[in-house]
Computed example of a mutant assay.
Amino acid sequence: MTALATELQSVFKSVILLHHHPRSLIQLTVQTMSAPPQATSTLRLTLDAKETSQSEPKRRAPLVLGPDQPFLSTEVAASINASTLALMDANIPLRATVIASACAIVPRGELSNERAVDSDDQEPSVILIDPTPEEEQSADSLHVLAFAVTGYEPTTKDDSNVHE
Rank of each mutant, 00 (worst) to 15 (best):
L111S: 04
L142N: 09
R115F: 00
K157L: 04
L145D: 05
T84G: 08
S112C: 13
A116F: 04
D158M: 11
H143P: 05
L85W: 06
D120E: 14
V144M: 01
G109S: 11
E153S: 11
I127L: 12
A100C: 08
T156F: 11
A100F: 08
K157I: 04
L111H: 03
P133T: 00
S101V: 06
A90R: 14
E110Q: 09
V106L: 07
A82W: 00
L145H: 09
F147Y: 01
D130E: 14
P107K: 08
F147M: 09
L145E: 05
V106Y: 05
L111P: 09
A146F: 13
I99V: 15
A86D: 09
V126Y: 05
R95Y: 07
D120T: 15
A104L: 05
A102H: 03
A116M: 05
D118P: 03
E136T: 04
S119E: 15
D120L: 14
L94V: 02
S125F: 12
R115P: 01
L85P: 00
C103M: 12
N113C: 06
Y152S: 01
Y152E: 10
G109D: 13
S141W: 07
T150L: 11
D118G: 08
D89P: 03
S101R: 03
R95L: 08
V117F: 14
A96F: 00
A102M: 00
A82G: 10
Y152W: 12
I129P: 01
D89F: 04
P124H: 03
A148E: 11
V106P: 12
A90E: 13
Q122I: 10
V106M: 03
R108D: 13
A116C: 07
L87T: 08
Q122W: 00
V98L: 00
E123H: 14
T150F: 13
S119W: 12
L145A: 07
R115G: 00
T97M: 08
A96H: 09
T97D: 04
D121P: 06
R108V: 13
S141I: 14
D89Q: 14
L85A: 09
L85Y: 07
L87Y: 06
A139F: 10
V144C: 02
A96Q: 15
E136H: 03
P154E: 03
I129G: 01
D118N: 14
I129H: 01
C103A: 02
P107G: 15
E123C: 13
P154N: 09
A139Q: 09
L128H: 08
D140V: 11
E123K: 13
I105F: 06
R108F: 02
E114F: 12
A148Y: 09
P133C: 02
R95V: 11
D89L: 06
A82Y: 02
K157T: 05
A148I: 00
A139N: 11
T97H: 05
E153K: 08
L111F: 09
T97W: 01
P107I: 11
Y152K: 07
A90S: 15
D140K: 11
E110D: 11
S119R: 15
S83M: 10
